[in-house]
């Protein structure tokens, strides 16, 4: 029997387009009520994976179930249980926000009263009430994104799939979208999202799968993945003329509690610690005791970038999360 907490179960899923393999042998589960992220660079296969799960793209190999229903054999049931927020600004320029939602109400077979109640609720949620009766071509990028999200939520889904929800948005809009997503989780909705922003994956996702070259490299919570790399460290650099005191400094540091490892380097020590906040003053104290003048102490906490590099052998992308897309 399947664990009731598992809402999506993916087993050896693969997709080929002619001679090209887009994704290969994917297996993972998504648990009820979590925000699950697929993190990877453009072309890694994130969107292909998502499109198979929302039943618009049939898989070439493997199977997957969503809320216990097979994505191929029971596609129609799956479609009625999920919401989808596509990557493109998939809005009709000539329709108003409200008309978009009315159309989807028809496609999800909701009654008129149900649809209208839902529309009022969603417009309030995404703050589009004032603009609901303007045609979408007058909307800003952020407003179109909000409308997209409202559309994805219209059927009152148990699981919402978001494809690059904040791609190309300014910082304020991005933070607001993050808030909506967290709010959804609080209401018990499971979220599956793709992203190529490390910061977004780190801040928002409960668990994530790093996907690169069409395969999953590692799965875990952001914290687990970062701790997996060895945790926090302090780098102590001492004054050049003090190198003879280095062995004594090392000995002193090693005798401290909460120290996991101490390594010598040409100009000082690399110290792996449990908690930098506690170890930092203790290390300085030791230095004073052995009368060793310090040039500096650097504190380093592994970031998701380091996790990504460690598991894929390359960086996600040259820039920061705010680097310009397209």
């Amino acid at each position: 029997m399947m664990d009731p907490a598992v809402v999506i179960d993916v087993a050896r899923l693969g997709k080929t387009f002619g001679p090209v393999t887009a994704v290969e042998d994917l297996s993972f589960t998504v648990r009820a009520g979590e925000i699950f992220g697929l993190l990877g660079p453009n072309g890694a296969g994130k969107s292909t994976t998502l499109r198979m799960l929302i039943t618009v793209l049939p898989p070439s190999t493997g199977t997957a179930t969503v809320l216990g229903h097979d994505i191929v054999a029971e596609a129609d049931t799956v479609r009625s249980l999920i919401g989808y927020v596509p990557q493109e600004r998939a809005v009709d320029r000539f329709l108003t926000g409200r008309e978009h939602l009315e159309l989807l109400g028809g496609l999800y077979h909701l009654s008129r009263t149900e649809t209208n109640a839902r529309i009022d609720e969603l417009l309030k949620l995404v703050n589009l009430e004032e603009h609901a009766d303007r045609v979408a071509k007058t909307y800003s990028g952020g407003m179109k994104r909000k409308l997209d999200i409202a559309c994805g939520l219209l059927p009152n889904p148990k699981i919402v799939f978001l494809d690059e929800p904040t791609l190309g948005l300014d910082v304020q809009s991005r933070l607001r979208i993050w808030d909506y997503i967290r709010q959804l989780r609080e209401n018990g909705i499971t979220i599956v999202m793709t992203t190529n922003y490390l910061e977004e994956a780190d801040q928002l996702c409960d668990r994530l799968a790093i996907i690169d070259g069409g395969a999953i490299r590692v799965i875990g919570s952001p914290l687990e993945l970062k701790t997996g790399l060895g945790g926090d460290s302090l780098s102590v650099t001492i004054k050049e003329y003090e190198t003879d005191k280095l062995p004594r400094l090392r000995e002193g540091v090693m005798s401290l509690p909460l120290i996991r490892d101490v390594r010598l380097n040409p100009t000082g020590l690399d110290i792996l610690v449990e908690s930098p906040e506690k170890s930092l003053p203790a290390v300085i104290e030791v230095a004073q005791r052995v009368d060793c003048s310090l040039d500096g102490i650097e504190y380093h906490r592994p970031r998701l970038d380091d996790v990504f590099v460690a598991h894929t052998g390359h960086g996600l992308r040259g820039g920061t999360p705010d680097a310009v897309e397209e």
Binding site: I54, T55, R79, S80, Q87, E88, R89, V91, L107, H109
Partner: peptide, 11 residues
């Protein structure tokens, strides 16, 4: 523009 895919993701 992805609107077709949105429609196809509905039942």
């Amino acid at each position: 523009n992805g609107f077709l895919e949105r429609m196809m993701s509905t039942p």
